[in-house]
Design a protein around this nucleic acid. Structure first.
Lengths: 207, 207
DNA sequence: TAGATTGTTAATCGATTAACAATC
DNA sequence: TAGATTGTTAATCGATTAACAATC
C-alpha cells in the first residue's frame, strides 16, 4: 500500500506499538501477540493486526510476533532506524529541561543545536551544547541539513520562529508553545501543551 | 444532553477552542464565528458548531459568538472556572521545569505539592514549594483533597506512583513517563511523550 | 494432531460534513 | 431589507470490530 494511502491515525499508533515492544525487550520477552499488546495498550487486538497489515506480514499464525523483529520493522517504517538531528529554539526553563532529557537518542533523535533570541543567554552552555543566537539559525540549519526542530519559546514568538525554521528547510516541528502555528503543506507540526490535557481531564472531575 | 453521552473526542476539542478564544481575547476581539475559529484551528466550521451544540446555544445568527461569553461558558463546562490543586511527583530536570512553568494558573490549575523519593532532594525548594518525601504523599493528598497529579518520574516507577496516587484519592493523572499506566475505572490518565510525536513526524520525512 | 493466532473481509459503529431553514 | 451565521438534520465518510479461513 502506498505511503500516502495509510491513514494518519494508523501512523499515529505505530510509535505506541514500538514503545510497548521496546518495553517488552527490556523485560527480555521474545514473543508477543496482538492480544497481549492490545491488553497492555487498551487497544483491540484486531486493530493492532489491521494497523500492521498496512505494511506487511510480520507475525506467524499460532505463535504471534517476534518482539525484536517487529520492533526493528516499526523503526524502519517510522524512519527512526537512524538518528535525526534536532534544533531546539527557546532555552528557558522548559527548553533547558528538554535539552537535558536523555531519552531521545534511543528513539532516533538527538538535539544538536540550541538557539535563543536573548543575548544574555547566547554563548552559555547547556550540557555539551552552546546556545547560539537566533540570527545564526537559518545558516546553521542549512549547513547541518537539519529537518526537525522543537519550539519552546513563548507563544507570541512561535509563529515567527516556525516561519524561519521552515524557510531554512525544517520539515517537522514539535511545538511546546500553546498556540497553533500555520506552515506550508508538506511540513508536519505536532503539539505538546499540558494545559490542554489537564482541561480535558477536568471535565470529568466533579468536586 | 447528559454528560456521559458526549463523546470524548468532542470534550478533547473544547480546550482547543478555549485556547483560541483566550488568544482572541488577548487580541481584544469581541466577536468571532465558527468560520474564523475553524480557519485558525484547521477544523471545519460545521464541526465547531456541532461540538458546541452538545452543550447549548451560545451564538447569534448572522453575528457569531461573543468571545468573552463563549470563553466563560467553555471554562464552566470544562470545570476550569476554579483552581485545581496539582501534586507533582518526580522532581528531576523535567519536574523542575514543570514546577517553574507559570502557565497553569490561568488555565485553572496550580501546582501546590512536590514529591520525590530521593532523600537528597527532600527538603529542597523549587520556587516557593518545598519537595516532600514520597512517604508523606498519601497523607498530604488526602488532607488537601487533591484530585489531580502529574507524574514526572522514570518509567519504571510510574505505575507504582500511579497506584499510590489513586489510592489517595487522585482522579486525574497527567503522565510524563513514557509508559502506559493502568488505573481503575473512573480515573483519567493523559500522556505527554515527546518521543511519540517525533516518531509520528519522522514517518513523513524522507531524507 | 489440537490449540492458538495471524491476516483479512464484511459488518458495524461513530464521526465529519454538506446543506439549509431559521433568524439576527 | 439583504447578508451573514447559527443550530440541526441527513448523508457521507472513515475507522473499528467481529468473525473466520488459513496455517503455524
Amino acid at each position: 500500500m502506498a505511503r500516502s494511502d495509510i491513514p494518519d491515525i494508523v501512523i499515529g499508533r505505530l510509535p505506541i506499538y514500538l514503545r510497548a515492544l521496546v518495553r517488552l525487550q527490556a523485560e527480555e520477552r521474545e514473543i508477543t501477540s496482538s492480544h497481549e499488546l492490545g491488553e497492555r495498550l487498551g487497544i483491540s487486538s484486531a486493530q493492532i493486526r489491521k494497523d500492521l497489515s498496512h505494511f506487511g506480514e510480520f507475525g506467524k499464525q499460532g505463535t504471534g510476533y517476534a518482539v525484536d523483529t517487529l520492533a526493528s520493522e516499526l523503526q524502519r517504517i517510522l524512519n527512526v532506524d537512524r538518528e535525526w538531528q534536532i534544533a531546539l529554539v527557546g532555552v528557558g526553563d522548559l527548553g533547558r529541561a528538554i535539552a537535558h532529557y536523555g531519552g531521545f537518542t534511543q528513539r532516533g533523535f538527538r538535539i544538536t543545536q540550541l538557539f535563543d533570541g536573548d543575548p544574555a543567554k547566547v554563548g552559555k552552555r547547556v550540557g555539551k551544547l552552546k546556545i547560539r543566537d537566533m540570527a545564526e539559525m537559518a545558516d546553521v540549519l542549512r549547513e547541518e541539513n537539519i529537518r526537525v526542530a522543537m519550539i519552546a519559546t513563548p507563544a507570541d514568538h512561535a509563529q515567527d520562529v516556525a516561519d524561519e525554521l521552515v524557510a531554512a528547510g525544517v520539515r517537522a516541528i514539535l511545538n511546546y508553545a500553546p498556540i497553533i502555528i500555520s506552515v506550508r503543506k508538506g511540513v508536519r507540526v505536532e503539539y505538546i501543551d499540558p494545559g490542554i490535557h489537564l482541561q480535558r481531564m477536568a471535565y470529568y472531575l466533579d468536586d
